Simulated scan of single mutants.
Amino acid sequence: MTFHEYPDRDMAVMQIAQMLAGSLRKCLAQHDLASLAVPGGSTPGPVFDAMSSVELDWSRVHVMLTDERWVPEDHERSNAGLVKRRLLTGPAAKAEFVPFYRAGMTADEAAPVLSQELGHLLPVSVLLLGMGADMHTASLFPGADTLSAALDKNAPMLCAVHPEDQPEARISLSAPVLDGAMEKHLVIFGDDKRTALEKAMTLPPEEAPVGAVIAGGDVHWAA
């Protein structure tokens, strides 16, 4: 794990966006297509804004989520809606977005279907992650009902999750898929998140799921 500390969040956002864009260009120079997996939440929004104007061959990039709340795209809590509003604009609008939500299906019903349909997009070329103060990443929450299955080395691409303190089910890339990304980047802001990450490195994945996926990756932090 490589730790990058920035003087402020604005500098972090600019540098992270450029690093991710450079990684995509490098991948596209060697492969026909590249896949970019990104989180929802408030932290990555400014990174999306910066990346959306970067010039690269976005038409050869598949963008997917690390996890999705099981709500329609026009719902205020939809991660897909956030990505489309803030990342898939300008030059980045040419990227192909890979949605997870399927109307008429539950998260539990959709997870195995999507795992089979989207397996050709693996391994993820470039992965961007966030982390909660509870040390969850994507929708791998400590104590979640399906966490053990999602952490298993033989887990499918996607797993349904039912967090007890959340209003809706979720679907998430599993730990082996996240850990198997060709490049991994975790973005955290604030002293509380840095402390949480340091604590996570001392705990088993069942208590700190982020620890199961960040080995060998890059961590980006600003106060």
Score class of each variant (00 low, 15 high):
residue 1 M to D: 00
residue 1 M to Y: 04
residue 5 E to A: 12
residue 6 Y to L: 11
residue 7 P to V: 07
residue 15 Q to E: 10
residue 17 A to Y: 07
residue 19 M to W: 02
residue 20 L to H: 09
residue 20 L to S: 08
residue 22 G to L: 08
residue 22 G to W: 09
residue 23 S to A: 11
residue 31 H to P: 04
residue 37 A to R: 00
residue 39 P to I: 04
residue 39 P to C: 09
residue 41 G to N: 05
residue 42 S to V: 00
residue 42 S to Y: 07
residue 43 T to W: 10
residue 44 P to F: 10
residue 45 G to L: 14
residue 46 P to G: 08
residue 47 V to F: 05
residue 51 M to N: 01
residue 51 M to W: 04
residue 53 S to I: 08
residue 54 V to F: 00
residue 55 E to R: 14
residue 55 E to M: 12
residue 57 D to E: 14
residue 58 W to E: 07
residue 64 M to E: 02
residue 65 L to W: 05
residue 69 R to T: 10
residue 69 R to Q: 10
residue 70 W to I: 08
residue 72 P to A: 13
residue 72 P to S: 12
residue 74 D to M: 10
residue 75 H to S: 09
residue 80 A to I: 02
residue 83 V to S: 14
residue 84 K to C: 10
residue 85 R to C: 02
residue 85 R to Q: 15
residue 88 L to T: 13
residue 96 E to C: 12
residue 101 Y to L: 09
residue 109 E to T: 12
residue 109 E to R: 06
residue 111 A to M: 11
residue 111 A to I: 11
residue 118 L to S: 02
residue 120 H to S: 10
residue 120 H to M: 04
residue 126 V to R: 02
residue 131 M to C: 07
residue 131 M to L: 04
residue 132 G to F: 07
residue 132 G to P: 04
residue 136 H to L: 05
residue 140 L to N: 08
residue 140 L to C: 11
residue 141 F to W: 06
residue 143 G to F: 03
residue 144 A to T: 13
residue 144 A to Q: 12
residue 144 A to Y: 04
residue 145 D to I: 08
residue 147 L to T: 04
residue 148 S to G: 09
residue 149 A to S: 11
residue 150 A to D: 06
residue 152 D to S: 13
residue 153 K to V: 11
residue 156 P to D: 11
residue 156 P to Q: 00
residue 161 V to L: 07
residue 165 D to K: 14
residue 170 R to A: 06
residue 171 I to Q: 01
residue 176 P to C: 06
residue 179 D to Q: 14
residue 181 A to H: 06
residue 186 L to H: 06
residue 188 I to Y: 09
residue 188 I to S: 04
residue 196 A to S: 15
residue 203 L to S: 05
residue 205 P to V: 12
residue 206 E to M: 13
residue 208 A to D: 03
residue 211 G to I: 01
residue 214 I to R: 00
residue 214 I to F: 03
residue 218 D to M: 09
residue 220 H to R: 02
residue 220 H to E: 05
residue 221 W to H: 15
